[in-house]
Structure formats: C-alpha cells, structure tokens
Amino acid sequence: MSLVNYLVLSGILFSIGSIAVLTRRNAIVAFMGVELMLNAANLTLVTFGRLHGDLHGQVIAFFVMVVAAAEVVIGLAIIVSIFRTRGSASIDDANLLKS
C-alpha cells in the first residue's frame, strides 16, 4: 500500500466526473460531475501534501473548497433561472448561441 493508490483513485474519480459532464444532459447531474472532478483534484492535493510532508496542499484544497462552494451557489442559481424561463434543465436545450 502506497500513497499512489490515492492518486489512482483520484484519477478514476476525475475521469468519471469528466465523462459525466460529457454524457449527461441534465444540467444538475453534469454539474455534480464537475464537483466530482474538483474533489478528485482536492484528493490529489491532500495526498501530495502528505507525500511531501507539507501543509500547503491542504491549504490549497481548502481554497478550492471555498471557491467550489461559491461556484455551486452561482451555478445552481443559473440552472434555476434557466429552468424557470425555459422550463427545462437540459443542457442541450440551452443552445441559442449556435450560429
């Protein structure tokens, strides 16, 4: 058992998060995929912090968490307002920017 296992787990979670963003049409689910990716990154940060015996990794992870919280608030507000105006939470329906 070495710390590399944590990194591999982080890679797996990150990949699952990214594929969720690519395949799921429900904006909320896709958004959860983004959160999963952020958490996978956090896991990496904390693991490397432990590997190097350094607390900076944890501090950065902490800031990532704060920023993610703010991002979630805004993202969900956007989803709610889109849902209100368009009656749908599907990302594919919000395609007005196409030429």
Binding site: L9, I12, L13, I16, G17, R24, V29, G33, L36
Partner: peptide, 9 residues
C-alpha cells in the same frame, strides 16, 4: 466511492 461515482453515469 467508485461505485457511488459511477451512479453519475
């Protein structure tokens, strides 16, 4: 955790 994450898919 992986199983829980796979529920996303």
């Amino acid at each position: 955790m992986v199983a829980g994450a796979l529920s996303l898919l």
